[in-house]
Amino acid sequence: MIRIILLLVITSVFAWPVTAAVRIKDVADFDGVRGNDLVGYGLVVGLDGTGDSFRNAPFTEELLSGLLERLGTNVTDDALRSKNVAAVVVTAELPPFARSGSRIDVGVSTIGDAKSLLGGTLVMTPLKAADGNIYAVAQGSLISGGISATGEAARVVEGVPTAGTIPSGARVEREVAFNFPEIENIRIALRNADFTTAARIEAAINRDFNRSIAATQDSGTVIVRFRDLGDVSPAHVLGRIENLLVEPEDRAKVVIDHRSGTIVMGEHVRISSVAVSQGNLTLRVSEAPLASQPNPFADGDTVVLPRSSAELANEPGIGFVKLPGDASLGDLIEGFNALGVAPRDMIDILKSIHAAGALHADLIVE
């Protein structure tokens, strides 16, 4: 007998934040105080036979040939048969106000058919920004993020051996031009745009400095006018501002992650008057094949005749439970508990409540 229960089996975890005061630098960024993404293309050498095959990755052969020529060695294509080399893409982030000579971390990922970067060394690789200029140079031994073992007829892989990192693997060669001490004002950009949060940031800054130096431009921007304070250091002012406490506001949201079965609800989620019922639908299919045999000493073959039976049953569930109008998150959970709803069914019920127009929150499904 095969029993198929037509339910979405997903484990759900509920969490909701408690509103509390947080620092401004935890909810907003300062205009100009930002990093820059860098990218480069290079070679990893010293692999134990797990590098690119030149037949499937001809760009690796071209890159290796060019590297050897720059080092004063001329080779032909037939001489390049090494499997200890892999072509990689190198990524990094240039921090704000990074100075020439400082070091930054880099990430390395293969782009060919290399099996593993374990034990490899990245050869000097220039890292460029979006403007095409070189801002850092990376080189060093990799720390791989996985393990790979290969035999004659089997291969075991744990983690991601085709990607790795080099802590402090790049040295900054060019600085980003930004005359921070000469700025007239600075914009505070909220990570989650909200008029209420922007107004609270404005009020907190003006209250702390005892003068009107901050103004809300829109739901995501607050402008701070430094020069209204006189001849002061912008760095000292921002250091004072970023530690001021505010209570952030946000839209009511319900976030559902299908992959992990996680449900996260904000504290401002509200439910209109709605009735909910939940039950189970069970389909049972059984097989009882019948063998048909010929008479003794008669010509013929034994034939197996299929015989199936199917039964569809709607198991009794809990009746309708009505949630009152303007129900809070606690009321919603109590309603689920009253229904005896298993965590695996809550995602479907939330979607249905939202489709009925009774869930007053943004439903985000990932």
Rank of each mutant, 00 (worst) to 15 (best):
V156L: 15
I166W: 00
A149M: 07
V160E: 06
Y135S: 04
G151I: 02
T162P: 04
N133V: 12
L142V: 11
T150M: 07
V172E: 02
R155Y: 03
P161V: 09
P167S: 13
G132S: 12
R171D: 05
I166K: 00
S148F: 01
I166S: 02
Y135D: 05
I147V: 13
I166Q: 01
E158F: 13
E152H: 12
I166T: 02
R155N: 09
V172K: 00
A153Q: 15
E158L: 11
L142Y: 00
V156T: 15
R155S: 13
G169T: 00
G140P: 03
G169S: 09
Y135R: 12
A136S: 05
S141T: 14
P161M: 14
S148D: 01
A154T: 13
R171Y: 09
P161H: 05
T150C: 04
E158W: 13
R155L: 09
E158S: 13
S144Q: 03
S168F: 15
G164N: 06
P161N: 10
Q139S: 09
V172G: 01
T165N: 06
Y135M: 05
I143F: 06
T150A: 12
A149W: 04
G151K: 06
A149H: 10
I143C: 02
A153H: 14
G146E: 08
T150E: 15
R155F: 02
L142K: 00
A138R: 01
G159E: 14
T150F: 04
L142I: 15
A136T: 06
E152W: 03
S144Y: 07
G169I: 02
V157D: 07
R171K: 11
R174H: 03
T162I: 13
V160D: 01
T165P: 07
G132W: 11
G159L: 06
V156E: 01
S168L: 13
V157N: 11
A136P: 08
G140D: 02
A170V: 01
S141P: 01
E173M: 08
R174W: 02
G145E: 15
N133G: 14
I134P: 01
G159H: 11
A154L: 12
R171P: 00
G145W: 10
S144K: 06
G169P: 00
N133W: 04
P167T: 10
V156D: 06
G145S: 15
A154Q: 14
A136C: 08
V172H: 07
R155G: 10
E158Y: 14
E158Q: 13
T165G: 06
A170W: 02
Q139M: 07
G169E: 03
T165H: 08
G151W: 11
G169N: 00
V160I: 14
E158H: 13
